[in-house]
């Protein structure tokens, strides 16, 4: 595992909410990040089916988009979400982990533009897609 992934992973584990949901950063490089989150009964939104709540999916997507921004080669110091839209295309299959990949596809001095896709084990049929804009707070040297 590269140092960069290790550092980013530690960073992720320092975020109480991400740690509480068991989020694990599996890849991060050049504005692209992947985070997985295990299935957890605490996250159920529909008690009839056991399907995870949309809110848990948005927590995963938001974290992943933020990580993608931070890993952009222009080295932004920090970032905060301005706006995030999530389209829920289908219910996540109960019992399966979710994985999100986010891409920071454009960045200016002040704003980062990000897209993300969330999948369960059926990786060909996304569960949700997101588009968001993020602030850029200073530059790391």
């Amino acid at each position: 595992m590269s140092d960069k992934v290790n550092i980013a992973r530690q960073f992720m584990e320092a975020i109480p909410h991400s740690r509480d949901l068991g989020m694990v950063l599996t890849a991060i490089e050049n504005g692209v990040a992947t985070i997985t989150m295990p299935y957890d009964e605490r996250l159920i939104g529909d008690p009839e089916t056991g399907v995870v709540h949309g809110g848990a999916v948005s927590a995963l997507m938001d974290s992943c988009c933020g990580a993608a921004v931070m890993s952009h080669p222009s080295n932004p110091g920090a970032t905060a979400t301005i706006d995030l839209r999530i389209d829920y295309m289908r219910s996540a299959t109960p019992g399966q982990a979710l994985s999100t990949t986010a891409t920071c596809y454009h960045i200016t001095r002040n704003v980062a533009f990000v897209r993300a896709t969330a999948v369960d084990e059926d990786t060909d049929n996304p569960v949700a897609m997101a588009t968001g804009t993020f602030t850029i707070e200073g530059q790391r040297r």
Partner: peptide, 18 residues
């Protein structure tokens, strides 16, 4: 457990959305 940025600290954006 709702914190997303321990430095500020601030509530996680995902929590706000949820």
């Amino acid at each position: 457990k709702l914190i997303g940025n321990p430095l500020l600290p601030a509530i996680h954006g995902g929590v706000t959305s949820a």
